[in-house]
Amino acid sequence: NQASVVANQLIPINTALTLVMMRSEVVTPVGIPAEDIPRLVSMQVNRAVPLGTTLMPDMVRGYA
């Protein structure tokens, strides 16, 4: 089972991601792999991401 990136807090739209906003968790469906967390830092979300939501590739500008 692969860990995915999950929002550690509410992340408002257009917010640049920081390490404290994300955690890794084994979830279904699988989202962005946890090993990509360092790559996600400073990328912006293109929608509001509620606490506990799995980050999907289409939620992060420039990721996919």
Results as ranks from 00 to 15, higher is better:
residue 33 P to W: 13
residue 63 Y to M: 04
residue 34 A to S: 15
residue 45 V to R: 00
residue 27 V to L: 09
residue 26 V to H: 09
residue 16 A to I: 09
residue 53 T to G: 06
residue 13 I to K: 13
residue 26 V to I: 14
residue 47 R to A: 11
residue 29 P to H: 07
residue 50 P to N: 13
residue 34 A to Q: 10
residue 40 L to K: 00
residue 13 I to N: 13
residue 5 V to W: 02
residue 40 L to G: 00
residue 40 L to M: 09
residue 52 G to N: 14
residue 28 T to Q: 06
residue 48 A to Q: 09
residue 55 L to Q: 00
residue 47 R to M: 12
residue 46 N to I: 15
residue 2 Q to M: 14
residue 21 M to V: 04
residue 40 L to C: 05
residue 59 M to Y: 12
residue 19 L to S: 06
residue 36 D to G: 07
residue 29 P to K: 06
residue 52 G to T: 03
residue 54 T to G: 03
residue 46 N to Q: 09
residue 30 V to M: 15
residue 37 I to R: 07
residue 7 A to D: 01
residue 41 V to I: 13
residue 63 Y to S: 03
residue 45 V to I: 11
residue 57 P to M: 10
residue 54 T to S: 05
residue 52 G to P: 00
residue 15 T to M: 13
residue 60 V to C: 03
residue 49 V to F: 02
residue 19 L to E: 04
residue 34 A to F: 07
residue 55 L to R: 01
residue 54 T to P: 08
residue 46 N to A: 13
residue 63 Y to W: 14
residue 51 L to P: 13
residue 14 N to A: 08
residue 64 A to K: 13
residue 49 V to S: 02
residue 46 N to S: 11
residue 22 M to V: 12
residue 17 L to Y: 01
residue 20 V to H: 14
residue 38 P to V: 13
residue 18 T to C: 05
residue 41 V to K: 06
residue 44 Q to K: 09
residue 39 R to H: 07
residue 24 S to A: 14
residue 43 M to I: 04
residue 18 T to F: 03
residue 2 Q to E: 15
residue 53 T to H: 14
residue 19 L to M: 15
residue 1 N to G: 14
residue 31 G to K: 01
residue 41 V to S: 04
residue 7 A to H: 02
residue 60 V to H: 01
residue 43 M to V: 04
residue 5 V to N: 00
residue 44 Q to I: 07
residue 26 V to Q: 14
residue 3 A to S: 13
residue 32 I to M: 03
residue 14 N to Q: 08
residue 9 Q to T: 15
residue 3 A to E: 15
residue 27 V to C: 04
residue 53 T to W: 13
residue 2 Q to P: 14
residue 31 G to L: 02
residue 29 P to Q: 07
residue 21 M to E: 02
residue 30 V to I: 10
residue 51 L to I: 12
residue 26 V to E: 15
residue 24 S to E: 11
residue 36 D to N: 07
residue 34 A to V: 15
residue 14 N to W: 10
residue 16 A to V: 13
residue 20 V to W: 15
residue 5 V to D: 00
residue 8 N to C: 05
residue 16 A to Q: 08
residue 36 D to M: 08
residue 40 L to N: 00
residue 18 T to L: 06
residue 47 R to E: 10
residue 39 R to S: 07
residue 54 T to R: 03
residue 56 M to C: 11
residue 45 V to S: 06
residue 37 I to E: 03
residue 21 M to A: 05
residue 43 M to A: 08
residue 49 V to W: 02
residue 55 L to T: 01
residue 19 L to H: 13
residue 19 L to N: 04
residue 11 I to V: 11
residue 5 V to I: 15
residue 1 N to A: 15
residue 23 R to N: 05
residue 50 P to D: 13
residue 59 M to H: 12
residue 51 L to W: 13
residue 48 A to W: 08
residue 30 V to C: 11
residue 2 Q to V: 12
residue 43 M to N: 04
residue 21 M to Y: 07
residue 15 T to K: 08
residue 44 Q to V: 11
residue 45 V to K: 01
residue 6 V to T: 11
residue 60 V to Q: 00
residue 62 G to K: 05
residue 21 M to W: 02
residue 3 A to I: 09
residue 62 G to C: 15
residue 6 V to P: 01
residue 39 R to C: 06
residue 30 V to D: 15
residue 17 L to Q: 01
residue 12 P to T: 11
residue 24 S to L: 07
residue 54 T to W: 02
residue 1 N to R: 03
residue 13 I to S: 14
residue 2 Q to N: 12
residue 63 Y to L: 07
residue 12 P to H: 08
residue 59 M to S: 05
residue 41 V to R: 09
residue 24 S to K: 05
residue 32 I to S: 01
residue 4 S to W: 02
residue 19 L to V: 04
residue 20 V to I: 11
residue 46 N to W: 07
residue 22 M to G: 00
residue 56 M to I: 08
residue 6 V to S: 03
residue 23 R to G: 05
residue 25 E to M: 06
residue 32 I to Y: 02
residue 22 M to D: 01
residue 31 G to H: 02
residue 1 N to T: 15
residue 38 P to F: 13
residue 16 A to C: 10
